[in-house]
Amino acid sequence: MDAEALVHDYLGRLEAAAGSLPPSRRAELTGEVRQHIEMALAEAGGRDEVTVRNVLDRLGPPDEIVDAERGAEGPPPAWAAAQPAAPALPSGWGGTEIAAILLLTLGAVFLPIIGPLLGLIFVWASVRWTKRQKAVATGIVVILAILPIILLLGVRAGGVVTSGQL
């Protein structure tokens, strides 16, 4: 498959994934991503198949882009109009993201249980992570922190029953 066909195929998959978005938003998103690909290719200084594949890999699967777009439906478009220099796609660190990371790391050390829980609330409040990424982060915290506590309580309860029987 040549480079142009790869881009065409990617944009086709993006359009298909964006089927649930309103047509105007879908067209806008496709246009933005196409522009982003063109800029990345211009920066890379080549349009060979490897470069195009790298650029598309860095963009991520079309589903994830659509998920992020769907998650970002809340903020009004006036936000972008008020800051013309801001990038079109929401990226970078905002207060919510920094608070989430600080609560998950330092918060977990200094405020056990409350810190990570607050961190997860901030993670879910952010529009810059996809739903899947939020779910994976929540899964990590739940499996590593909460499950062992439940297992420990279970073992302790089992131990009490055993000693009671003796």
């Binding site: 993201e97 989430a100 990371i101 810190g115 990570p116 982060a137 990590i140 590593l144």
Partner: peptide, 30 residues
């Protein structure tokens, strides 16, 4: 014995989740 495990796992879980989110954000930005 239970308390150190409990105390260690919560920060570890938070740090792992934070690392995952930071990597996800950096991958999206690049």
């Amino acid at each position: 014995m239970d308390v150190p495990l409990f105390v260690l796992l919560i920060p570890l879980a938070g740090i792992l989740a934070a690392v995952y989110l930071v990597v996800a954000m950096l991958r999206r930005r690049s």
